[in-house]
Each structure stands twice: as C-alpha cells, then as structure tokens.
C-alpha cells in the first residue's frame, strides 16, 4: 500500500468539490426524483437519520417522499482512502438544510423566532468508489464514481 501523490490528493479534492456542488444542487432541484438516484447503484447503502435505504431504488423512494429542501454546504473535506487505486474517497459535509416551501416557516400562527422555522444542521458522510463497469465518458475522466455508502443525520 503506497502513500498518495500530490496528484491523487488534487484529483480527490477536485472530485469532492464537483460532487458536493452537483449532489446538493440535484437534491434541491425539481428533477431530484429522476436524477438523485443516479449517484447510487443497487448495491449502495444509505441511512437517513438512522433509517436504512438500499440502493438507487431506496434513494428514489426516500427522495420521492421528501419535502422540498434547500441545502447550504458550509464545510466539507475529502480523503483518498488508502489501499485502492484509483482510490476510494471519503467525503464529509457539514451544513444546513431547510425543508418545506416557506423558507422561514413564517405561517401566521408561528413567530419567526420559533425553532421549528429555522434551518437544521446536517452532517453527511459519503464513501465514493469507482465503477469498473462504467467506462469514462468524457475527455480526461479517470473513472466514474458512485456513492457506495452514505450516512446523513440532522445534528442541530
């Protein structure tokens, strides 16, 4: 098991940057039911607040019943995981998410000071792995990756 080169670290960082933008903009879009499952494969495992969902179909089921979301990524990090080439990636994201149509939940009967109308803090960890069956489709693409494991929780 050799250590990583600067190039490995750069590719991983670039991928994480690209992935987090793409993932949350897809999650928050009107086309999320069609598009979000594409990040996953049938073998992928995910938990949403400790509740398990299996594979792309599980993700589709989950997202179909989800209120409208607006994510804000405040902090993320990514490592190439030692022991594989091209390396698997570990990505952690910390940010806030607002659910529902009214951005501040300002219904007539509740004050905007209500805790329930505020964004939640979420923490989400992904393990991304290369898909050996999906050949690179674009110039320069080293490999195509998918979400192998995904654990999301509301934490504040």
């Amino acid at each position: 098991m050799s250590t990583f080169t600067q190039n490995d670290i750069e590719i991983a960082t670039r991928a994480a940057d690209h992935f987090t933008r793409l993932y949350y903009s897809t999650y928050d879009s009107a086309t999320r039911v069609d598009n979000l499952p594409n990040f996953y494969r049938p073998s992928s495992a995910m938990t949403w607040n400790g509740k398990p969902f299996q594979g792309s179909d599980g993700v589709r089921k989950l997202i179909s019943a989800m209120p409208v979301t607006k994510h804000e990524v405040q902090c993320f990090d990514c490592h190439p995981i030692p022991g594989s080439q091209p390396p698997n990636l570990l990505i952690t994201v910390s940010g806030t998410v607002t659910h529902g149509h009214r951005p501040t939940g300002n219904s007539a009967s509740t004050s905007s000071k209500s805790v329930d109308s505020q964004p939640r803090v979420f923490s989400q960890t992904f393990m991304l792995v290369p898909d050996p069956t999906a050949p690179p489709s674009k110039t320069g693409e080293v490999a195509k990756y998918y979400v192998n494991a995904d654990a999301m929780r509301f934490v504040g």
Binding site: F39, G140, E141
Partner: peptide
Amino acid sequence: PKIGFDAPAASTSAVAST
C-alpha cells in the same frame, strides 16, 4: 484528469421530468 459522476450537469437536467 478527473473523476466523473452519473448525475446530469445543471444544463441538461431540464430534460428530466420535473
């Protein structure tokens, strides 16, 4: 050199049903 994902870029997502 970069890593790709199977989700559409923002420009093409209009094709999918909303």
